[in-house]
Design a protein around this nucleic acid. Sequence first.
DNA 1: CGCTAAACGAGACGGTACGTCGTGTCTTCTG
DNA 2: CAGAAGACACGACGTACCGTCTCGTTTAGCG
Lengths: 200, 200, 200, 200
Amino acid sequence: MERPHTGRRRNEAAREAVIDAAIALLQDVGYEGFTIERLAKDAGVGKQTVYRWWPSKAAVVAEAIGTRAQHTIPLPDTGALGTDLAEFFQTTFRQSEDPAVINQLKHMMAASIENPETAAPFKEFLANRRASLRSLLERGAARHEMADGTDLDFLTDLAYGLLWYRGLIGHRPLDDDAARKLAAALVAASAPAPSAPSDS
Amino acid sequence: MERPHTGRRRNEAAREAVIDAAIALLQDVGYEGFTIERLAKDAGVGKQTVYRWWPSKAAVVAEAIGTRAQHTIPLPDTGALGTDLAEFFQTTFRQSEDPAVINQLKHMMAASIENPETAAPFKEFLANRRASLRSLLERGAARHEMADGTDLDFLTDLAYGLLWYRGLIGHRPLDDDAARKLAAALVAASAPAPSAPSDS
Amino acid sequence: MERPHTGRRRNEAAREAVIDAAIALLQDVGYEGFTIERLAKDAGVGKQTVYRWWPSKAAVVAEAIGTRAQHTIPLPDTGALGTDLAEFFQTTFRQSEDPAVINQLKHMMAASIENPETAAPFKEFLANRRASLRSLLERGAARHEMADGTDLDFLTDLAYGLLWYRGLIGHRPLDDDAARKLAAALVAASAPAPSAPSDS
Amino acid sequence: MERPHTGRRRNEAAREAVIDAAIALLQDVGYEGFTIERLAKDAGVGKQTVYRWWPSKAAVVAEAIGTRAQHTIPLPDTGALGTDLAEFFQTTFRQSEDPAVINQLKHMMAASIENPETAAPFKEFLANRRASLRSLLERGAARHEMADGTDLDFLTDLAYGLLWYRGLIGHRPLDDDAARKLAAALVAASAPAPSAPSDS
DNA sequence: CGCTAAACGAGACGGTACGTCGTGTCTTCTG
DNA sequence: CAGAAGACACGACGTACCGTCTCGTTTAGCG
């Protein structure tokens, strides 16, 4: 019937070494300048081993991106949307101020632009991040801190848009002040109604 | 003194041939696969002539894109911030929905990430776009449609952040609805004060 | 221990293809005009393969010369120095009248002048040729057809000097007459003594 | 009369600067490595000025060679062929032992091989040198120091053959001993007749 | 335990494109 | 209007990687 297997098994250590080296290399030189030759040497692996398991540079990068894009931001729960958001953005922005992190994110974005194959895992990563923020907003909506019919996806994109825009261009910082203003803006943009001045 | 110049001048025809060929080639094979060798041959130009005037593939591409990317958005002036913004974003978003345009912008961004050397003209381009929007917002501030001390740069980044975030990822459209919501969000985020109810 | 070798071994066929192509190319276009690019293409080999094994154009040419410069002239043995020499020179000169041969020799000489790196194998080749003639002369000396203390190296240089001088300049032919005269001149220059006839 | 001439006259100094630089450059780097670009820069001259007056690198080299190759050997006149020749060869060989001289001669030869265009002035130079020696031999023939019908051209080639052969290869010196042996060899090879004892 | 077979590090292979340099031609400006 | 400066189209230079192909070695299951 089916021959189960013969010969040496795949060396998992080699696989990990390649992925780790890929992440480091991507951060270092970007998607352009990313070389299988260099990757293999950095990983201490033969070129053929790379080609045996990944069909292309894009595939390695894609897997590297997918593997690394796991880190999550803890969702705060202070009971009020404004403070929840402010805290969430502060944590997020502080992470993004780390040059290594922003560098990695930028190069992941560039890779995603250059090659659609790498885009898929990257987009999934982004979708996960959006989902985090959305659940925060949903909590606010459930507490009626938002007008009915508020477009949560829009607000999410607004928030991550600021993060990425400043992160990619670097013309202005992602500091605590920006986090506070962003939280306030989201709250203002989703405020329930202009009529009844709030009390509570 | 100043030596005015000696020797043959730059051949403008060659420059144009290169830029034209670059645009065609970019559309044909994309940023990857874009070869200086092929570019020179297509343009009927020596490779050296390309390298003489552009430091890198990215630089040629940047200029090619920049040459074509002259489209300016007319600043509407309806007398009210909300409608001005809505109109501005609608026009902007509609342009960005063109696959060719968004593709060029994405590749400009990727090139800017991969190669900081090319980033300068791109950042200037972005700064110009921000300045357009900012002048619109300033008009609103002058009309006291905004709270004192509103951070116009923050609002600008918020707006372009949404544009770029959706443009780069493509997970949701930049349609008229988004434009309207964005205008409303900016207005809400900069509203003069919750205390004094409006009196139209 | 000793690492025996790792990785694929050198492809001997490629080496031979390069050398063969080098010989042909050298004959065709000379040392100038000899292009590594063309050599690689003619040999059906990657340029890198050439550069991997030879440090320079000169080195390839040197090896090509060394490989090809094996053809030996049979040493005649008629029992008398004069006829031995005459026969040897006739054979040698006739070979040298072939335009292809003389062309190759000239270009070898030029290469040896231009680039000392190529000189070594060429000089060895020349030394081999001198050794052939010298053994002929030694036989004559052993038969006491020469004066004691005759400088065989000088005679050898005299003979090959004529060959090369005419070969390089081409102002006069290397024909049978020249061969005969050369043989006679060597015999005269090495004659044992003015034994019987002359006095003084 | 004469047209007063308009505009700048041809700069003879530029021509000389080129030739001088060519000689120096040729000695320095040989025919290979000889660059018009470098020549123009060394001469402090525009490339076009070189091309205006010489059709090719070979032509410049040819003229440089022709200009410099003027040095003549004084013809000795001792009354006897053997001593005349010995003196002539000693003088000639001593000049040729100068590394600068031999280097220049070798590169001239190489240039002549590589590029037939440069060969003409070089061959003329060689012909002049042969003519010198031939006139010496003719004097000996006139004095009946030679057999009737001796091939003077052959003897000339024999002599210069030795000079060039040793000069080009450098395996043995062109010293006074060699000069003496060469003179003796020529005398022996042209001796009037073994039978008839001399009767001066 | 010995055999077969696959995976491994290493690295040579035929290629393509790189960015630089020199060619010979052609402006352009200065003296 | 000759001459320097230098841009031009062309093409070879020597290098870096591409993706494929041996090599000899290591490691696993099967008989």
